[in-house]
Write a protein that binds this DNA or RNA. Structure first.
Lengths: 97, 97
DNA sequence: TTGTCAGGCAAGTGTTCACTTGCCTATGGT
DNA sequence: ACCATAGGCAAGTGAACACTTGCCTGACAA
């Protein structure tokens, strides 16, 4: 749903998680927790990050794959494609000199 | 702020307001109220819409200009430009056959 | 089997948010 | 002057949200 997408993007921590996944795909939950702590100084609980990942997954911004006892998280940019263009008006010619 | 932008986009009513401003720029508060009611069946109070417009204005998505007792609202798409591209990874060649 | 590591489920808490109600200001018409 | 119109300010309410704590499941190694 479109609703899930915008709600997922509304939280700054979730946007940081997306930033981290752009750098390296296939991170595990503990990796994401560590990166949030070291790179951004966010001391979040493992469950907090897990819930954020659930929201991102509901928005289809993050895909997951299990291997053994690890669960890797991959970024999916496809829902973002037609989001901004929704309001980007065709600029009238001559309005941007 | 970036925070204000994403929070502004998080609410469905505010996204409808943006949709309406894409169709016709320079709408007044009562016009926006009427369009939300007729086009989308949303029976919102004038103050509710006014508060939504304040949030959109804080995100710089809406610019306002006063003329007499009227206040016209104009859409500003500039904050949306570099939003999505933040996470749009350069697709590796051959990954989209 | 026992211990450990990665992750999940569920209830509880405090804050933020959307929306309403009530009153106030200012501009314009008659 | 009057009154209607267009909008603003502020307090209050109920729901959604972010985050925590505590316990439980499943996979690997000794």
């Amino acid at each position: 749903m479109e609703e899930d997408l915008f709600k997922a993007l509304a939280d700054p921590t979730r946007r940081r998680i997306l930033d981290g996944l752009v750098e390296r795909d296939g991170q595990t939950l503990f990796e994401i927790c560590a990166r949030l702590a070291t790179d951004h100084g966010l001391g979040l609980t493992r469950q907090a990050v897990s819930q954020h990942l659930a929201v991102l997954e509901a928005a289809d911004l993050v895909r997951t794959r299990r291997e053994g006892r690890y669960k890797f998280h991959d970024l999916n940019t496809e829902p973002l494609e037609h989001v901004v263009t929704r309001w980007l008006r065709p600029t009238p010619p001559g309005s941007t000199p």
